[in-house]
Design a protein around this nucleic acid. Structure first.
Lengths: 211, 211, 211, 211
DNA sequence: TATGAATGAGCGTTCATTCAT
DNA sequence: AATGAATGAACGCTCATTCAT
């Protein structure tokens, strides 16, 4: 009846997860050994297997954290709304703010690893991610439709396409941040996104949608 | 009878490169063995080393091809211009058309692998990619500035930021295509991008840039 | 309150032994983990080591039980004798009855494991088993010699060889039972053994031993 | 086009097989590492996998050799017949002669390992062995029935049971040889077997089968 | 030049054993 | 006495790379 609290077990799982996230981001999933993760988590190699039955399960857990993180971020931002368009702006600000956070580079890379893993080995993770992305697109689409109802955005705009575009902008900015680091001014990019969004307001002689 | 023309050598290198590209995209860099590449290229395992001194060198070459491919695509599209704005539209059309091509999923994934490799092991490749991306951004920025001079785009827009944004849209759309496959309508996204771009035209009472 | 009676300790040892016997028979010695044995014995992994200092010691104990079991079986059967030949028959019946018992397959396999272990790592166990087998052979030999004295078996028969043969028949039948399961009719085999044994009675013109 | 003849490949497979047979017999299947086998076969650890895809496959091959060996031995002996009873004697002599051969102990132990492996992991091997044993029993049964037709053995004897018994005697003698080594006189055992067999001849007033 | 057998370091994983509680 | 988390050596197996042919 040794006293091993659930809290202790959770703390260990967290340690391992953190270690794995760091290593996966830094050296890649394939480039990271279980020994390294164990070392980073101050454990022996074998101990990990008490908490995660395999490297793949650990990867799954790591990716799950990424998914949760993204989903949460978008959900929170969307909640703090005033007018629909302001809500979208707020989501953008919130999403873009992660490019300024400490360790953002690692987070972004980890997300890429997750994308690759989902696209190849981890089919179930792929489904989870698909769900998450679709949820984000739908949430943005809803806001856009509200903005259209409030005459802040032209009715001629395909709301789902615009939502996808906004998400793509964010993802793409992340990619650019990974590749160009300080050569990319993500704030400036967000500013232009906002600018363009506001230009989508309906015009007097309704010619929007003309391509 | 040392009749080994340079052409023959180049052809072999090409074979190996093609095989490696396919396998890397399909199974990942770490998940691909040299044997598999050799088999795909109709060679023995050892023969590859006559053309590429290591797997990493091969990866470098593969990533280089990716870089060249992207650079070329953008350059070609930019050349076929009429008015500046049309040129940008054309670049978009051209860039987005790759999402419709056969094996696009694999190409996109390979590009992601390259990004990750560059961000980690292959520092020189990172520089090369940075150069390429900056070149694209500058090219787009130039077009945008021309469009501004031609009063097709409002002067209040940060041309480099807009250029970065357009690139990010493209990269992000690729990411979405990887993750959502047929759930994403890249054509519709491009249509909205174009729409927004055209809305950036200067307005009568010059209030552009208001954010 | 150190109330740990010897009875309690013995009971635990017995639990562990039973668990180990079951698992070793079912999954093999190498295929069984200490954790599994502990679980089966309703103990934690570490607790076993209070009773048996190592897996090998546990194996030794398990094999010892096997030895005891066999020795006992033969001894009991031999005791319930009437005429010498009947005693041999009775030993046979008793020995063969184990092929009908529940879990016989597992018992037989465990015995094989013990044989192999004795032949390799566990030299002392080997000596113990040798002793046991020799004891059986001698006991049977004695019965045979008594039967010869009682003119139930021809004097020309080598009593020790016949004893060994009878034991070999039993061991071999066990082997066949393991391999052929229901394809072998052990009752029929015993019947023939008995038949042959009775045919060894002295004949009028004493030509026994002619080979 | 390196000249690697099939003969060379076969020789290597043979080397590995021999090494594995020796080690498995000496240290047990579980107690033998692939490194050890490789060392014994004068190869590196990895090289084995070119010839056998896994340890289990190697075990299968080793067991297959055992099966082939036994089957062959019985078949050859049965062929060199004169009268039916003599044929049976000949089979016995041949079968028992292996107890005198060099490395017989190892062979016998290996056979036991095969039995255990077949009874547990290697179900298909189990089927193969079952087939082999049944074939032997049937062959012996046929000889016995011929001997009955030739009035060398009493009709009242169950031919299949006697055949099984003879096989069991052989297997059991092997087991005794493993356990008792020089304490068992296998020649004497065979002599008694033969003796008993000859005593099964029909008697004038046909009372055979009385049990 | 090309082959492919061989190497051997290193991987993910298991498990007998220890020991703080 | 009992627990079960932790250890760490060792296993089966893979694969980038080498080299005799």
């Amino acid at each position: 009846m040794t006293r091993v609290t659930q809290a202790h077990i959770d703390a260990r799982k967290e340690d391992i997860l953190d270690a794995a996230m760091g290593m996966f981001a830094r050296k890649g999933v394939a480039g990271t050994t279980m020994q390294e993760i164990a070392g980073e988590a101050h454990l022996s190699a074998g101990a990990i297997y008490r908490y995660y039955p395999s490297k793949e399960d650990l990867l799954r857990a790591v990716c799950g954290v990424t998914v949760d993180h993204v989903r949460e971020m978008f959900a929170q931002a969307a909640a703090s709304a005033h007018s629909p368009l302001e809500a979208i702006d707020e989501v953008g600000r919130s999403a873009w703010s992660e490019f300024k956070s400490e360790g953002c580079q690692e987070h972004l890379i980890l997300n890429l690893e997750a994308t690759l893993a989902a696209a190849r080995q981890l089919k179930e993770l792929g489904a989870e991610r698909r769900e998450m992305l679709n949820a984000i697109i739908e949430m943005l689409g809803r806001l856009i439709r509200q903005a259209q109802a409030a005459e802040q955005i032209d009715d001629g705009v395909d709301s789902r396409a615009l939502a996808s575009l906004l998400l793509a902008c964010h993802l793409g900015s992340g990619l650019l941040t990974i590749e160009l680091e300080d050569d990319v001014d993500s704030d400036a990019i967000l500013r232009v996104v906002t600018q363009m969004l506001h230009r989508l307001a309906p015009v007097a002689n309704g010619d929007a949608g003309r391509t």
